[in-house]
Amino acid sequence: MDKLREMEMFGEDGRDGGVSTVMANVMDPDGLRRAFDGCAGVFHTSAFVDPGGMSGYTKHMAALEAQAAERVIEACVRTESVRKCVFTSSLLACVWRQDYPHDRRCPTTIDESCWSDESFCRDNKLWFALGKTAAEKAAWRAARGRDLKLVTICPALVTGPGFRRRNSTASIAYLKGARAMLADGLLATANVETVAEAHVHAYEAMGDNTAGGRYICYDHVVKRPEEFAELERQLGLPGGAAPAPAHGSDDRPARFELCKRKLSRLMSSRRRCAYDTYYSVAFEV
């Protein structure tokens, strides 16, 4: 709300460029339909924000997020002009599972086929992971068999200049359980520009049916405690959450390995298409 008011105050709301600002309650399907009317696609990137910066992400927020996801997809389906939706989920919807294989020497790959165990998240009070998992599943259920193309992007901890400060609720909530993620090779970050680019590429590829399903998105896997300590510092969190490395632990392979091959293929193919189109037009001119 504050950002919208600021944009209006300084004339940055895009009215002169054919872009308008519309506000709606994500829990109000009729309001969402009115907001979506005339749009060909929807990017559902909303997240809860704690204005006081104190309460954090709660169990109640997790339940609300799942309800909101279902209502957004339902509104998309019921809006005649909308045919595509890109839904922002989280890498946390993929990594938390009960059946960790403790005795395997080779890393287990975590890719788009993996889902976090909701019972595990609930038992360990991983509310942010629970909310993202439940919300994404709700979105897929609501879109199943309907006239709507849906793609979900599952980014790691989103970083970027000032991003974590402006979105501290989600950033701090993401790091609940960071000790285990760091030890298992599952703590990763994604620059906000990379995440935005992934959304755009997915949306464009949906037009020719070359994008579908889920896409894991990250830039960097945090492997050292000092890297995690820097994340803590940037978020203003108390230090000491990162585990001290055991003697000889640097020689041990991580038990898990993140895989973003699907997104890499999509983004490289879209870049090639843009390159070919640009040079074809330039040559003709």
Rank of each mutant, 00 (worst) to 15 (best):
C121Q: 02
R122H: 10
R122N: 13
D123G: 07
K125H: 11
K125E: 13
K125F: 01
K125T: 06
F128V: 02
A129E: 01
A129W: 08
A129F: 00
G131C: 10
K132S: 01
T133N: 04
T133A: 03
T133H: 09
A134C: 09
A135E: 06
A135F: 12
E136K: 09
E136D: 10
E136P: 10
E136S: 10
K137D: 14
K137Q: 15
K137E: 12
A138P: 12
A139T: 05
A139C: 11
A139G: 10
W140V: 07
W140A: 04
A142L: 12
A142M: 15
A143C: 08
A143P: 00
A143T: 09
G145P: 07
R146C: 14
D147E: 11
D147K: 04
L148P: 00
L150K: 00
L150I: 07
T152G: 03
T152V: 03
T152E: 00
T152A: 04
T152S: 07
I153K: 01
C154W: 07
C154D: 14
C154S: 12
P155E: 02
P155K: 07
P155V: 02
A156Q: 05
A156E: 08
A156M: 10
L157T: 05
V158W: 05
T159F: 04
T159I: 14
T159P: 06
G160R: 01
P161G: 00
G162Y: 11
G162E: 14
G162N: 10
F163H: 10
F163L: 07
F163Y: 14
R164Y: 06
R164N: 08
R165L: 06
R165V: 14
R166V: 02
R166W: 11
N167H: 12
N167R: 04
N167I: 00
T169W: 14
T169Q: 06
T169H: 01
S171Y: 02
